[in-house]
Simulated scan of single mutants.
Amino acid sequence: MDEQLTIGELARRTGVATSALRYWEELGLLPPPARVSGQRRYPPSAVGLVGLILMLQDVGFTLREAKAFVDSRSLDDDGWRELYERKLAELDQRIARAQVARTAIAHGLACPHEKIFECPNFAKGIEAILAGGTLKEVHEQIHSD
Rank of each mutant, 00 (worst) to 15 (best):
E3A: 10
E3G: 10
T6K: 04
L10Q: 00
A11R: 02
R12Q: 09
R12E: 03
T18V: 02
A20P: 11
A20W: 10
Y23S: 02
E25R: 11
E26S: 14
E26G: 12
E26Q: 08
L27M: 11
L27W: 09
L29N: 08
L29S: 10
R35V: 06
V36M: 13
S37L: 13
G38T: 05
S45I: 09
A46S: 14
A46I: 01
G48C: 05
G48K: 09
L49P: 01
L52C: 05
L52H: 04
L54E: 13
L56K: 04
Q57F: 06
D58P: 09
D58V: 11
F61N: 02
L63N: 08
R64L: 10
R64E: 13
K67M: 07
K67C: 05
A68T: 10
F69Y: 14
F69A: 02
D71C: 06
D71R: 10
S72L: 04
R73S: 09
D77C: 08
D78V: 14
D78A: 15
W80K: 00
R81L: 15
R81H: 10
Y84L: 15
E85S: 12
R86I: 07
L88F: 07
D92M: 12
R97M: 02
R97N: 07
A98F: 00
A98D: 05
Q99T: 01
V100I: 08
R102N: 13
I105M: 06
I105G: 06
G108L: 14
A110H: 09
P112N: 11
P112T: 13
H113W: 10
H113G: 01
K115H: 14
K115V: 13
C119H: 03
N121G: 11
A123S: 12
A123Y: 09
G125V: 10
I126P: 03
I126S: 08
L130A: 13
G132V: 08
T134I: 01
E137H: 05
V138N: 10
H139Y: 15
I142S: 00
H143I: 07
D145Q: 15
